[in-house]
Amino acid sequence: MKKRQLQEILGFNLLRVCMVLVLLTLAFILYDIISKGAGKISWEFLTAMPRNGMKEGGILPAIVGTVLVTVITAILSIPFGMGAAIYLNEYAKDNNLTRLIRMSIRNLSGVPSIVYGLFGVILFVQAMNIGTCVLSAGLTLGLMTLPWTITASEEALKNVPNSFREGALALGATKWQAIRTNVLPYAISGMLTGTILGLSRAAGETAPILFTGAAFYLPFLPRSLFDQFMALPYHLYIMSTQHHAITQVRPIAYGTALVLITAVFAMNLFATILRYRLRKTKME
């Protein structure tokens, strides 16, 4: 065998090892959590209040809290994110200001989540005096997801061929008519895909809600948007680091982790299905 061929075989196998290692990591994470968490999942675990200093009972308040916060995040980030993307891609002139705005948005999407947490404390908890509650936490997560939503939505709008816009305009459509009837219908699933991915990331975030509303332990469900709440990711953090009987509550931690990743993956799966459907109805 020639030296060059040997080199190629070795090299490609090295790459294959890298790929397999990455896949094994994922497989291990999923296996560990599913195998140790599945035993804990029961109807009671999902629908009961925690009891006896969180050593027993279920995680219902954490599930409800995460759902509520995610809904608020969605209410903030879907209309504003999509609106901003439509403005930037369809209406804004391509000048230095727009480029600066776009660059800032991209940079904001890389700002650490804990910095959003700090910002949420200043803006919502203190300045607007909303206090630490569901609303503050949801708004903080909403701000954090906005840059992702805007960037992903703009990307989706960019993928609609310009000929769709020009064709409509040339037939006497107003700009908004062209966008509404001939651009948005073909961009909407892409926009939603990006938005849902952003929401799923927000649902799994802990740092931004640490100081804006998440509570250690509440034996009741939030009654209004101005109540504190329990959340799945924060609950997992508490159960694995702060609880006084850490080893005893480990199964609960595993169960919580499983519920959390299931919720997040369900959202991701939904987004992926949307994307595949989008690919099928590809426009040329």
Partner: peptide, 8 residues
């Protein structure tokens, strides 16, 4: 237009 641009 130069390139036919039917809508989908």
């Amino acid at each position: 237009f130069q390139k036919s641009n039917p809508f989908p």
